[in-house]
């Protein structure tokens, strides 16, 4: 706003908005603090066995230990790399396939049933095949991550492409636009919001894929720590790895939201 020349009523409105926002944040942090406090309390006083429930302080100690010997960053690095690689491949591949399916009606009709079936298939059923094909290294996990994300990426982007307003296409054609121009100047820009929502969904999918992959095959990563911790009954380890996972997923989501702010400032069809 250039001129700060509000009426008193508007100033009051703004102040109340600000207060409300502060309250919401205070409550959010309060809820977290309360839960952690209660958790710590019930385990410290022995109401609940910390061996089964772990506790915030034990999680902190575990994390500090893992950080000290460097293994924390190693496992984070492994999982992060698998997740990001799988995410990137799924998104790019999904976008490319959606483009091809938009371009050719025939191709789309040919592939539609396959996509529907692949979408419905629980990807974890392919676990054994993936181990046989890709071994038990990072490749297998990246493949699993791509598998979990790519179909959803295709369906999201394709449905946005297809939903491009018929009248705007007519307008472009009346200007003499060819298919390529219609794609670049109309179909893709008008699908930005859908692409962003696809990215958001796929952040979640990528984590599901990579952790699921690590459950099945891996020898490193946060998913591995969780499985391993469960097997040897080290609940502190399970909780610590889960906690780090929450932070990473939230961070990645925040990046996509930032991208959204940059990309779709003025689009609201």
């Amino acid at each position: 706003m250039k001129h700060v020349n509000y009426s008193q009523e508007h100033a009051r409105f703004l102040r109340r908005r600000k207060q409300n926002l502060a309250l919401v944040w205070a409550l959010r942090i309060g809820v977290l603090a309360l839960l952690l406090g209660l958790w710590e309390l019930v385990t410290a006083t022995g109401w609940v066995d910390p061996f089964i429930m772990s506790s915030p302080s034990r999680i902190a100690t575990t994390l500090a230990g893992l950080a000290a010997d460097g293994s924390l960053f190693y496992h984070i690095g492994v999982t992060l790399w698998e997740t990001l690689a799988g995410f990137a491949i799924a998104v790019v591949l999904g976008f490319a396939v959606a483009l091809a399916l938009w371009w050719s009606d025939t191709l789309r009709r040919v592939l539609e049933p396959y996509i529907v079936v692949l979408n419905a298939l629980p990807k974890i059923a392919l676990g054994p095949l993936i181990i046989i094909w890709f071994g038990t290294g990072s490749e297998a996990i990246v493949f699993m991550t791509v598998l979990v994300g790519v179909i959803i990426a295709i369906m999201h982007v394709l449905s946005a492409f297809i939903a491009t307003e018929e009248s705007k296409i007519l307008l472009m054609r009346s200007m003499g636009a060819n298919k390529w121009q219609i794609l670049c100047k109309l179909v893709i820009p008008s699908s930005y919001p859908a692409v962003i929502s696809m990215l958001k969904v796929n952040v979640g999918m990528a984590w599901i894929g990579s952790i699921m992959g690590e459950y099945i095959v891996s020898r490193a990563g946060l998913g591995y720590l969780i499985v391993y911790g469960g097997q040897v009954f080290k609940l502190d380890l399970v909780m610590s790895a889960t906690f780090v996972l929450c932070l990473l997923a939230a961070g990645m989501y925040a990046l996509v939201v930032l991208l959204e702010k940059i990309l779709v400032k003025n689009t609201d069809n």
Binding site: M175, Q181, V264, T267
Partner: peptide, 27 residues
């Protein structure tokens, strides 16, 4: 020909200026 439709069909992600240039770009 120039075609004008029932709705303005301006592209919301383009400024008015860029919208006006659209047919120039296409042609």
């Amino acid at each position: 020909f120039g075609y004008m439709l029932q709705k303005d069909e301006l592209f919301p992600w383009r400024t008015i200026e860029k919208n006006i240039f659209l047919p120039l770009e296409v042609k």
